[in-house]
Simulated scan of single mutants.
Amino acid sequence: MSKRSRDTATAAEESFDSLEQEVFLNLWRTYDRLKLIEDEVFGRVGLSAQQYNALRLLRSVHPDAMPTLMLGSRLISRAPDMTRLLDRLEKRRLLLRERRPENRRVVEVRIAKDGMQLLNEVHDAVQECHRQQLGHLNKKVLRQLVDLLRKARQPHEDTENLSFIDE
């Protein structure tokens, strides 16, 4: 190790309370940098990343519907106010909600024609966004990163309600 590498490592060790803290803060900073690129793409079409994720999940079961509780459990990140998220999408006519007569407590949602159209319109921009975010990494490094991230979150996952990326 060169003297400069040793000095940099020593400075980093002194800046953090633990290696775990350093890793966590690096994850957080990385998320923040990558999210800026994503926010720009979704902002152009008036969606949040969570709204986009919800529409994609509904498209995956189209033409069927999905109960709102199941939809909420399959989102990449928790939606603290699922009702508001769905209200906004319904107001834009991107999804449809209905209560089943046999069980009025269950609300089911399905993607609407306009929601399918919006996903088709934004598809290429989302793919380009992912290339901007991580396209500088080769496939081997990306696969290693996926594996490490799964290992990091695995003990904290709700095995009864896995996100679609962990199924």
Rank of each mutant, 00 (worst) to 15 (best):
I76A: 12
L148R: 13
L148G: 07
I76W: 11
Q127K: 09
E128A: 12
L145R: 07
K151L: 13
K113S: 09
V41G: 06
T10H: 14
K139Y: 05
D64S: 05
C129D: 03
S15D: 13
Y52F: 11
E128K: 13
R6N: 10
P67G: 04
L119Q: 03
R78N: 10
L86Q: 03
K139I: 02
S73D: 14
L75F: 10
N103S: 12
N53K: 03
L71P: 02
Q144N: 12
A11W: 04
A152I: 09
N138I: 03
E40Q: 12
G135S: 02
E102N: 05
E157M: 05
H136S: 07
L27E: 14
L137P: 01
T8F: 13
D166L: 13
K91R: 12
M66I: 03
L162A: 05
V126E: 02
N103L: 10
P80K: 07
D17S: 13
M1S: 14
E102R: 09
P63S: 03
T8V: 15
E108V: 09
N120D: 15
L94W: 07
L75T: 04
D166E: 11
L134N: 07
M70A: 11
Q51N: 01
T159V: 11
E22R: 15
E121S: 07
E40N: 09
Q117Y: 05
L55W: 07
E128H: 13
A112F: 06
N103D: 15
G46K: 04
L19C: 03
L25I: 14
N138A: 07
T68Y: 05
A11P: 00
R74H: 08
M70E: 15
Y52S: 00
K3Y: 10
V126G: 02
L55C: 06
G135P: 04
R56W: 02
L85C: 02
S5W: 10
V23K: 15
K113T: 09
L69T: 12
L47G: 01
L145N: 07
E90A: 10
K91L: 06
R44W: 03
R131S: 02
E98D: 09
D32A: 11
F164V: 12
A54S: 06
I111H: 03
V41H: 03
L96F: 10
